[in-house]
Nucleic acid binder design. Structure first.
Lengths: 264, 264
DNA sequence: TAGTGGTCTAGACCACTTC
DNA sequence: AAGTGGTCTAGACCACTAA
């Protein structure tokens, strides 16, 4: 026998999926269900909390509990890094991407801070630096309108970026073409990348910073960017609200028997 | 002022991160903290539940609450699809991958069912089939030892697989070389793929099936596999326990100005 | 001010595990 | 039987929102 709160949550979840409660619509108030004999207030509350953790509803004091709108996933393909955009044009990769998905660009949707810090172990490893080496950390919080969507922190080696716009702590994107353009102008043209992704529960800090609904996971993206000669010029860590993004990769099926290097 | 349960959870989380409680070690029992004045039983329980949702601990009746072991992420690169493995050798892609990561292979770690079903909308779209068309669905639940790690359901067009081993509902991998080998033998050599990933909270069904700790998210992987001529021969949906996997992709930075097709 | 969800308590009882 | 976490109640009170 499942707990009472679980049964209530399942019943409501089914009604939501059936469409009895449309997105944006209110669920019955907690006290109504209590009066209707669904259980004590704590029990009904537990059911609502479970629905929230499963991503179906959001509750807020004073308002009530409403069925969550499904925001369309923003698909991120490698085309967002297209050199033509930032080398030949003015666009910054992340903005170009947003324009492509039909959402307008507004100013002040990105805040950033640039600091010189001792490289965290993972960063040092990615850059091939010894423990304790210093790097520049460029941390951005990217929003879509009022809603934060992800953070992105890029780590650069000082000798690559010192004296460039990248270490200028002015808010906003790093000028025309963004960070890759700055590296390009400094003689470091990016050539290939490695992206590594995994998902996990959000920490309390991330819940606050990204304004995540309770229970929404995050996706961490670790991106290593190389020049043609294999030098790492950027290592970046992104933390994304999971409900807003999907990643897409196209590749040829590798065949080590005839093509030693595979898909590099 | 944060709620009492949140403050308690934060305090315990910090102690866990500091190492005061090592992985595998027990946290104080709920009743101990109640006696110590941390709050009522419900309050302490709420704190423990939050820690569980954040992936830090797991609780179980009769035992107690212990700090979660961090299982190393299994890194999935595209090398797991290497043709040499399944075309020239005997390995099945997913097994080869496991061997490569140093974990032994045991029999009966995969269960499967094959059924002929009306294609769900997404599947029909991927295969370019009209609504209502039928496909073969080959559903597997993959385990590592006793622990389920992910489900993987492949959808095939009947004309590609009818009469092959793939529609034989015998448990276990589809014989030597696995599914791609069967398609290869039937004249459909796979050539390139598209993988699409996103994360979300687990549904109650998935929590049960994959034996997920409370709060652990899942990663959905949608894989479309093409022949050289562009025919879709497999569309697969995987649901992965997030704490067990990371995905890695290497690619060249695209340059539409000089190379029209990018990295396909 | 009235109504919403959220927190907290004290205590009873249940489900599961170990001895 | 004893000890663990989990559920449930009844009721008080708090925090936030809207009219």
């Amino acid at each position: 026998m499942a707990p009472k709160w679980r049964e209530l949550a399942d019943k409501l979840a089914e009604q939501i999926k059936r469409g009895d409660y449309a997105p944006g619509q209110q669920l019955p108030h907690i006290r109504e269900l209590v009066e209707a004999g669904a259980g004590s207030k704590a029990t009904v509350h537990a059911a609502y909390k479970a629905l929230e953790a499963e991503g179906l509803v959001t509750s807020s004091r004073g308002h009530g509990t409403v069925v969550r709108q499904q925001v369309p996933l923003k698909r991120l393909g490698i085309a967002r890094y297209d050199k033509a955009k930032w080398r030949d044009g003015d666009e910054v990769a992340f903005i170009a991407d947003r324009v492509a998905s039909g959402r307008g660009y507004r100013r002040n949707e990105q805040t950033q801070t640039v600091t010189r810090v001792v490289a965290p172990p993972e960063v040092a490893a990615a850059h091939g630096l010894p423990e304790g080496a210093e790097v520049y950390a460029r941390a951005r919080l990217v929003k879509e309108g009022d809603q934060p969507t992800h953070t992105l922190t890029s780590y650069y080696r000082p000798e690559h970026v010192e004296g460039t716009r990248l270490v200028d702590p002015t808010p906003g994107p790093a000028g025309r073409g963004g960070g890759f353009r700055v590296l390009y102008d400094a003689g470091y043209e990016i050539d290939h990348m490695k992206e590594r992704l995994f998902a996990r529960a959000a920490t309390p800090d991330e819940v606050k910073l990204l304004q995540l609904p309770s229970g929404e996971p995050v996706v961490e993206l670790h991106r290593t960017t190389y020049t043609a000669s294999g030098t790492v010029v950027e290592f970046a860590i992104g933390v994304h609200a999971a409900s807003r993004f999907a990643w897409e990769y196209d590749f040829k099926v590798p065949d080590s028997a005839k093509d030693r290097k595979g898909q590099q």
